[in-house]
């Protein structure tokens, strides 16, 4: 489905997440679920079978007692810019990278539920619908009309709130502009974060906040060595937090294959 005009990279959306400012409140996780019509947990769901397009993980420095220190790392689809593992393994072509935005898109309607992509994803950022989506009676009235609910048996994941991107694009067209005003397009987790730890913007625009933050010395990306060029940049002033981003074993053996 990717056409030949692949080179016209209009924007390369990405995030800069300040780990030092994350207090693990979980606002991003519920805001994401509200925005994207993700259903509440099935009674049997666990942390392995749940649906959380963005999930905040707690990491620690490995010490015991009073020396122990923790940090929270919000983990969502990293929107790999290069060799995204989920794209190449999909037998259904249900995953693609939008050359206009850099967003790795997942098409639940094409998905046959083989979960190859979940196995391939080095970040465990993809989630499978193990159960029929179900909302308590009446709560379906609160669903967001800009996002279609998914069915059981398909994989879904973060797409930088594509419903909001559509709305921003329509607004841009209505105003007669061609480029989206950065203020019009912001994923739900960014808007919801009470501490302002998550920033969102165009990495191609070198003056944008995300691009500037990505260039900072304390900025890092998860599993950078496997060469997938993720577009989620984290930053922390603590060295042990930055070290959690490395794969457990160094070297090329952790690359795909």
């Amino acid at each position: 489905m990717i056409s030949e005009n692949k080179k016209t990279l209009a924007a390369r959306y990405g995030m800069s997440i300040d780990v030092d400012r994350c207090n693990g409140c979980g606002s991003c996780m519920v805001a994401c679920a509200v925005e994207n019509n993700v259903p509440p947990a099935n009674a049997n769901a666990t942390d392995r079978t749940g649906l959380t397009w963005i999930r905040v993980f707690k990491v620690d420095n490995g010490l015991e007692g009073a020396d122990r220190r923790s940090a929270f790392i919000p983990l969502l689809c990293q929107h790999c810019g290069h060799d995204a593992p989920c794209v190449s393994v999909c037998p259904q072509q249900a995953v693609d990278i939008d050359p206009a935005t850099g967003v790795v898109g997942q098409m639940p309607e094409r998905c046959l539920g083989c979960r190859y992509c979940m196995t391939a994803c080095p970040y465990h950022a993809r989630y499978f619908n193990w159960w029929d989506p179900a909302w308590p009676a009446g709560m379906e009235k609160t669903l967001n009309p800009d996002v279609a609910p998914r069915m059981r048996g398909v994989v879904e994941k973060c797409n930088f709130c594509h419903g909001r991107w559509h709305a921003a694009k329509a607004k841009t067209a209505a105003e007669g502009n061609t480029a989206i005003d950065p203020g019009d397009y912001m994923p739900a987790c960014v808007e919801a974060c009470p501490t302002g730890a998550i920033q969102f913007g165009d990495l191609n625009d070198s003056s944008s906040l995300v691009a500037r933050n990505a260039r900072r010395a304390e900025s890092f990306r998860l599993l950078e060595s496997i060469g997938t060029d993720p577009k989620i940049h984290y930053r922390s002033t603590k060295a042990w937090v930055r070290d959690t981003a490395h794969p457990p074993r160094p070297g090329k053996e952790n690359a795909r294959g």
């Binding site: 979980g26 519920v30 509440p40 749940g50 649906l51 993980f57 929270f72």
Partner: peptide
């Protein structure tokens, strides 16, 4: 609290 808080209580161990 909203039924969606199960994202934090059950589908992850955040809270």
């Amino acid at each position: 609290v909203s039924p969606l808080m199960t994202k934090l209580y059950q589908e992850s161990n955040l809270r």
